[in-house]
Design a protein around this nucleic acid. Structure first.
Length: 595
RNA sequence: GGGGUCGUAGUUCAGUUUGGUUAGAACGCCAGCCUGUCACGUUGGAGGUCGCGGGUUCGAGCCCCGUCGGCCCCGCCA
């Protein structure tokens, strides 16, 4: 028996032909002398009919068949008359089998692959343990295949643009990224370790120094940090780098690549995406990756409260903090319970409290601040926020970073609760001019906001030099902007990159800014500093998360839906039960003792 | 490292508010019947250490303590 068709391709035109189909039994419906089998392969489902009168042997064999058995059938394609099934792509036809081969039996699966009606899927841990069964579900099949298409489209794009695909090693030395490394012991050099790449950052810069000019790679990356719905310990990124380019030229490639990929789901982005500086994004949306599918921008109430005597606000403003709000349209009916919930929500992000104003449909004002600020001030604030009758205003005061984080998160949370997000919309954005450094409150030091090879903006070079060389001006580092940028789609950071430093002096300056001694810098990236001195071209690039991109293509908010074999939130593989222990012999060979 | 939430039949859940006889439903599974189903129908049946351990109580799925695991979030992830 040789397969002639898949289970997804037979149509009316095929009626009359003799076909052989192979696949898994998705469903059997036994009517005694007549048996129906829904036969499934990766392309779809075809209904097979076994009739006791016309093919008794095949019909008799079907008696033993259960779900997920692997079978092959041979028979004639017959048009369904009056019984056509609109839910199936093959629903106009069915195959009347006269031969049936059972290639393999299957145990009853530990969960139902396709639940009927409104029943939920089995719990995720069970499905992860039997990932090979879960992957048979058409939904996951589609996601994994969409991922393959996306990667193919990316390769096609960069190949067409003259980029060269170069593989960099998985066994590396620890790279400068901030995350924890996965380390691999060396047997030959006992006591020494390789590190798995968190990204091929340094190596791709070295390919520029080597003169490859336009490089790309579909690179596996590893970070030993805690997981999230959109984070796994190993993930894949599209990594690219170009020489002799400015930021706009890199943006063009980001736009070109994503525009090409998004066509897979018939989304047409503008040739040039909107741009927004980091500071504007933080001010208007409280986020460096704003979701532009809905409005609800943050409004600043600080100026209207500059003379307030209400202690919490007074303190906030005196300490350089701010008071901002969002307006929730039509929700002046928020209950005490709901505002309490919202308060609990913002507290996670460090906000001390949540204040609110509600404007009833008749204009009556209610507010948690009514007693302390008075009706007149409340009305002024509501008006300043742009609130109208029927709206609710949610207010947070505090440090700028806390106000941004809490209101930025609350903006998304409220949008979800109020169903304000258009699920069919796709809004791209390039966020520019990220700060070069972030201030670490605890150690009162400045750390690289991007990575230590990111170039400062030309306009800020003098500021940068002053901040580094004059200890009393160190705080100015917080104002230095970098030639760093992110690509954001629907609030997901899909790609990030920068123009790199190509002059050794600037690089040295940057290490100094980060509090790294020349010796320390040399110890960590001496080879790279050496390379910088042998004719480094100006260069820049970006890296795009393959999983994040596929999540958007597949419309899912869970990274596990776009990976074939993902790990749980506690970084375990439930199917193969990894990580696992190793033999003492293996450890001895590596000179490792486990406490 | 911290917080939230969930854990009851093979699966998804109800039952926990207010402790009380024999822990239910649906789907799945097993056996029979059925020639047009596609969430087939129908008759019958099997199936439970209520995550695990301890405690309170005459009595615990339900209350208390601990513990393990899934998911989500904060920190972390440039």
């Amino acid at each position: 028996m040789e397969r002639t068709h898949t289970c997804g391709e037979l149509r009316k035109d095929d009626v009359g032909s003799s076909v052989v189909l192979m696949g898994w039994v998705a469903k059997k419906r036994d009517f005694g002398p007549l048996t129906f089998i829904d036969l499934r392969d990766r392309e779809g489902i075809t209904q097979v009919v076994l009739n006791e009168e016309t093919s008794p042997d095949a019909h008799a064999k079907a008696k033993d068949i259960r779900g997920e058995f692997v079978i092959g059938i041979k028979g004639a394609v017959v048009e369904r008359e009056g019984t056509h099934n609109a839910k199936l792509a093959t629903g106009d036809i069915e195959v009347h089998a006269d031969e049936l081969l059972i290639y393999n039996t299957a145990k009853v699966p530990p969960f139902e692959l396709e639940k009927s009606g409104s029943q939920n899927l089995a719990s995720e841990d069970l499905r992860l343990k039997y990932r090979y069964l879960d992957l048979r579900r058409p939904q996951l099949q589609n996601n994994i295949r969409m991922r393959a298409k996306a990667v193919a489209a990316i390769r096609q794009y960069f190949d067409g643009r003259g980029f060269i695909e170069i593989e960099t090693p998985i066994l590396l030395k620890s790279t400068p990224e901030g995350a924890r490394d996965f380390i691999v012991p060396s047997r030959i050099h006992t006591g020494k370790f390789f590190a798995l790449p968190q990204s091929p950052q340094i190596l791709k810069q070295i390919t520029m120094i080597s003169g490859f000019d336009k490089y790309f790679q579909i690179a596996r990356c590893f970070r030993d940090e805690d997981l999230r719905a959109d984070r796994q310990p190993e993930f894949t990124q599209l990594d690219m780098e170009m020489s002799f380019v400015n930021r706009e030229q890199v943006y063009r490639e980001i736009e070109g690549m994503f525009n090409h990929v998004l066509r897979l789901i018939d989304v047409e982005f503008p040739t040039e995406w909107p741009r927004m500086t980091h500071s504007e994004a933080m001010r208007r949306y409280g986020s460096d990756k704003p979701d532009l599918r809905f409005e609800m921008e943050l409004q600043d109430l600080s100026s209207a409260l500059k003379d307030t005597e209400f202690a919490p606000f007074r303190d906030t403003l005196d300490r350089g903090g701010e008071i901002k709000c969002i307006v929730v349209k039509g929700r002046s009916d928020y209950s005490r319970k709901q505002t309490d919930e919202i308060q609990e929500y913002v507290k996670r992000y460090g906000a001390g409290a949540l204040a609110w104003i509600k404007i009833a449909a008749d204009g009556t004002l209610a507010s948690s601040l009514l007693k302390v600020l008075g009706e007149e001030k409340i009305a002024e604030l509501a008006s300043l926020a742009g609130a109208e009758k029927g709206d609710a205003v949610l207010i947070v005061a505090g440090r700028r970073s806390v106000v941004a984080a809490s209101l930025g998160a609350l903006r998304l949370e409220v949008a979800r609760r109020e169903d304000l997000i258009d699920r069919t919309a796709y809004k791209p954005l390039i966020v520019t001019e990220f700060p070069m450094f972030e201030h670490d409150e605890e150690s009162d030091t400045y750390i690289a906001a991007h990575h230590p090879f990111t170039s400062p903006m030309d306009e800020d070079i003098e500021l940068f030099k002053t901040a580094v060389n004059d200890a009393s001006q160190h705080h100015l580092l917080g104002q230095v902007r970098a030639k760093a940028y992110d690509a954001v789609i629907n609030g997901y950071e899909c790609a990030g990159g920068s123009i790199r430093i190509h002059q050794k002096e600037i690089q040295d300056l940057n290490f100094k800014a980060l509090g790294m001694t020349p010796e320390k810098a040399r110890e960590r990236f001496g080879f790279f500093l050496d390379a910088l001195e042998y004719g480094t071209p100006p260069h820049g690039g970006f890296a795009a998360g393959i999983e994040r991109t596929c999540m958007i293509l597949c419309g899912t908010e869970n990274i596990r839906d776009v990976m074939a074999f993902p790990k749980t939130a506690s970084a375990q593989d439930l199917m193969m039960d990894s990580p696992g222990e190793v033999d003492d012999a293996q450890l001895n060979e590596l000179g490792i003792r486990v406490e």
